[in-house]
């Protein structure tokens, strides 16, 4: 008996080795017959958690592609909304399909160059005439207005930012439709100056300022910003309103270029009536 124990003790390592291997073989075999041994598989708590953390980290590397996809999707959806259709009322009872006639078309683009610190700021987009962009079209982001297209090459577009001396945007106060003109004084890229609102109009800090339908560039009711503060200069009949832009010009990347399909028609008509006047 003693000899047996001595023998076993001498070969304790080998016995331990055999035990471990037997356990391993048991795991392998039971895994084959029962699909998965429950206590060690990737569905368990630790491995599952680590894998889900890794996936959430990995997602960050695909944010760019995801964003692009969403921008594309948004463009498509914008093209379907009611706002892009103008009511074509003469045909209401004749043809159902013509109740709405498309007036605006959205093209998505990415800003590849941008500045906010110059007096006259310009942006560059990664789309050009090959995508249907022409001069004098509105550029908006999902948060609000960005600028107006200026020069167009085949694949790129230069955009006159709202943060530019030459940018005068026709705007209105959303709650009462009084209109004025919005410009930028060149100091703070977050604040614009809104003038030509008569002093008898009731306005308050926080009122929303949007584009109006007077311009043939911007669609109506595109967000510009909120009233930050206002005052009346001595001897003036109009407010000087400071507007906080809803677009953050410093980090805007995805924009839509808005084409007004009826622009030519409207321009021709307005010119015609002005000429008749003379």
């Amino acid at each position: 008996m003693i000899n047996l124990f001595r023998f076993l003790w001498k070969h304790i390592n080998f016995i331990f080795f055999l035990l471990l291997e037997i356990f391993c073989v048991y795991l392998i075999v039971s895994n084959n017959s029962f699909q998965k041994a429950r206590f060690v598989s990737s569905s368990n708590y630790l491995a599952g958690n680590i894998y889900s953390t890794i996936t959430s980290i990995r997602e960050y590397f695909y944010l760019k592609e995801t964003n692009d996809a969403f921008a594309l999707e948004n463009t498509r959806l914008h093209n379907l909304t009611r706002d892009v259709f103008a009511r074509n009322s003469t045909l209401v009872y004749l043809v159902k399909d013509s109740v709405f006639k498309q007036q605006y078309k959205y093209i998505n683009a990415k800003i590849i160059n941008n500045s906010v610190n110059k007096r006259n700021n310009y942006l560059t987009l990664n789309r050009g005439s090959s995508s249907g962009i022409g001069p004098e079209m509105a550029v908006i982001s999902s948060n609000g207005i960005v600028g107006i297209t200026k020069d167009v090459s085949e694949n790129f577009t230069s955009v006159l930012s709202v943060l530019n001396k030459n940018a005068k945007i026709s705007a209105k106060i959303k709650k009462n439709n009084y209109f004025g003109s919005l410009s930028w004084d060149g100091s703070d890229y977050r604040l614009g100056t809104f003038i030509d609102i008569p002093t008898h109009v009731n306005i308050a800090v926080g009122d929303t300022v949007v584009t109006n339908a007077f311009s043939d560039i911007f669609p109506e009711n595109i967000l510009i910003g909120k009233i930050e503060s206002f005052d009346i200069k001595p001897g003036d009949n109009f407010y000087t309103i400071i507007v906080r832009f809803s677009t953050n010009f410093k980090n805007v990347t995805h924009v839509y270029v808005v084409t007004n399909i009826m622009k030519e028609e409207r321009k021709k008509l307005e010119q015609q009536s002005q000429q008749n006047d003379k």
């Binding site: 795991l27 392998i28 598989s41």
Partner: peptide
């Protein structure tokens, strides 16, 4: 060591067996 790798790869004991053999 082997069983932790098995946990992630769903190979259930194969790595453990190989590792134990190697250790021996």
């Amino acid at each position: 060591m082997g069983i932790s790798i098995d946990m992630f790869l769903n190979t259930m004991g194969i790595h453990a067996a190989a590792c134990v053999f190697m250790a021996y």
